[in-house]
Amino acid sequence: MTTVLTYVERDGDTLAKPSRETLTFARSLAEAHGWGLDAALVGDPTEGSLADLRAQGVATVHALVHDHLDDDAAPAAVAEALVQLHTQLGPGVLVGPGTDHGAEVMAHVGARTDLPLAANCTTAAPADGGGWDLTRVRWGGVLLEDAHLEADVALLTAAPHQTAAQSAGAPGAAELSTFKPELDDALHVTRVKERATRGGGISLATAPVVISGGRGVGSAEGFGILEELAELLGGAVGCSRVATNNGWRSHNDQVGQTGTRVAPDLYVACGISGATQHWVGCMSSKKILAINTDAEAPMVTRADYAVLGDLHELLPALVEEVKARRGVG
């Protein structure tokens, strides 16, 4: 039987959200054709991640086990392990999450097998007459491309934020199977040697609310009031490319095609016009509020809510309003 093998990542005890989205994407492909759904991950899966894998309808979970396969593993080594496992399972589909790590691992899979890899897919199906018909996102998601992949084996990554993670109708067995690949020492050259964690604060990628500032904020100091509001709401501060290019904020805070793509419950865009580069970074947010003096700004016309005024007037009043409702100060 054809198997859709899905590479997944853990986030602490559970499966990372993009990996659950990828499994839902992979399952819809498997179910449409009566194929099996397997998952592979580095090291031993935790109880929490096994529960997620069962919920996603996974039949077999392949734990990739090797001295050098751990959190610091080289993407090339993970890729070689996946290639060996995939070869053993027989031809089919190998899909990974379109995260930074997933994209890097799958690029190595493509290079090592010399097979085409379609990045950031939203749909895939076998084509009449061979190969695969698929849709993938371009320009960070502002455009879709219908494409044809000419290969027996489909190597894919699933576009983040495009498929909502949903549990399977019937849970899978998620039977655990250990796979021990043979890995050449040269593969481990790019292992992570050490880590520097930023520590503290809420991560931009997972914050429930992001307060983001652009040209209209005017200065590094101008972000003070955005910081205050974000802290009150338990969110993170983001910014546009203009703000990083002006040196007002660190690039780590940049939301956009070349920064972080966020999907919070609420995205508040303060003084951001909404060029494509920025829009693709925030368009997956559940709700968007634009604060801008320009009623014609693309961010305003595409937002769910807008305040057509000066952010420097609104934000201090808003901070006071939130404090009052909270009964603070």
């Binding site: 016309t301 769910d304 807008a306 305040v307 057509l308 005024g309 007037e313 609104l314 201090p316 309003e321």
Partner: peptide, 14 residues
């Protein structure tokens, strides 16, 4: 787009 106001007076609506 739902317009919530034009300045500080929009704070309660936000």
């Amino acid at each position: 787009t739902q317009i919530l106001g034009t300045g500080a007076e929009a704070a309660p609506a936000v």
